[in-house]
Nucleic acid binder design. Structure first.
Lengths: 145, 145
DNA sequence: TCCTTAGTTGACAAGCCGATCCATATAACC
DNA sequence: GGTTATATGGATCGGCTTGTCAACTAAGGA
């Protein structure tokens, strides 16, 4: 499972993508997504340092995507926020696994990790935004579930 | 990834299985596996309450497997120690996911979780013990890598 | 009965993550 | 220049997991 911070980043950037390139305030994104504002500010800052978003201080400032939403993968976000999923951790406990020092689950877990990484790399912020937009659309049409 | 506690449980029970049904002391298991003794005592106690191991106090006491190692799956250990892997958590953040309130990654993650659960359910403590015994054997024969 | 052994139990400390608060820096506007 | 708006950065807090410690309880043997 991704850490909560990465989940917040996905929600926030998906919302930004839905806004279509406009600059939004951290507090507005937080209000719309239900993320604690002060915490989102830290996440946005970290993403800014990694070049995923562009931030602007002062009046009229805010946050924008540094590149198209279709160019930002979920893996990019996990990397930027140093999520444990990018580390070669062993399934059975907290140690780092390698081909040389394999644990009993090493082959299985290696394959699983490859699938998860592939999913995170091929899934873009734009995909999540499209999914959310679709949900909003359906929610506005009760009875069409 | 499983929590460190479950990893310790797997190592300890695998060692216990390799001892062939004998009763061993917590401190001896800890010394052999490198697990902090006081912490292992807690884990063993939790496993005892869930009926995975049998404990005996006093002189000549110790810990034994409550049933054959081939009847104890890694999933049993994760359940006994309430590892998060058994919870229906969402991939994207800390929320609980369901078919009704699906996140964008829900279908993907559901399939992944099913594979992981299947692996943990079909992999037994006896399998891990056999793997470790094999490693020990190879390590005693340098050059046969 | 008393001593030793060994698991049991509860209190507690360190470290990490999630989260909050406050002061500061910076940019725009008047 | 002063005021306002906004991100930046540091200190701190609470909860959870990991891990330690010490007192307690149960069992066996002398």
């Amino acid at each position: 499972m991704l850490s909560q911070g990465v989940g917040y980043a996905i929600s926030a950037l998906s919302f930004l993508a839905a806004a279509g390139g406009k600059s939004l305030l951290v507090k507005d994104i937080a209000a719309a997504t239900g993320i604690p504002p002060a915490y989102l500010a830290k996440i946005v800052h970290a993403l800014g340092k990694r070049g995923v978003v562009a931030t602007q201080r002062g009046v009229g400032g805010g946050v924008t995507l540094a590149r198209p939403a279709s160019d930002i993968s979920l893996f990019d976000l996990a990397l930027a926020l140093q999520d444990p999923v990018v580390e070669p951790m062993c399934l059975l406990g907290g140690a780092v696994c390698s081909d040389e020092r394999a644990c009993p689950a090493h082959e299985f877990w290696k394959a699983q990790r490859a699938e998860i990484h592939s999913y995170l790399q091929t899934t873009r912020v734009s995909d999540v935004a499209a999914f959310e937009a679709d949900r909003m659309w359906k929610a506005s049409k009760p009875g069409t579930v």
